[in-house]
């Protein structure tokens, strides 16, 4: 699954550690999601959606 997490994060000048702290996960988790090597669960996807104020389908795509 592809995502635009890196772009969204860069737009807000957040580091991976900043985003990880806001989500309550480790920096490794953010890195793995950004690189597309780990697909987040629905609760984490909803957290991202809420944090960026965007629908899930805008952040993630096939």
């Amino acid at each position: 699954m592809k995502n635009c997490l890196r772009t969204l994060r860069a737009e807000r000048s957040w580091s991976q550690a900043d985003l990880a702290e806001k989500l309550g996960v480790s920096r490794q988790t953010v890195n793995a999601i950004e690189t597309g090597r780990f697909d987040p669960s629905l609760p984490l996807a909803f957290k991202l959606s809420k944090l960026f104020a965007l629908p899930i389908e805008t952040i993630f795509s096939d």
Binding site: G24, V25, S26, Q28, T29, A32, I33, F38, P40, S41
Partner: peptide, 8 residues
């Protein structure tokens, strides 16, 4: 463990 990636 709350972090699902670390859990996996």
């Amino acid at each position: 463990e709350p972090d699902e990636f670390i859990r996996s």
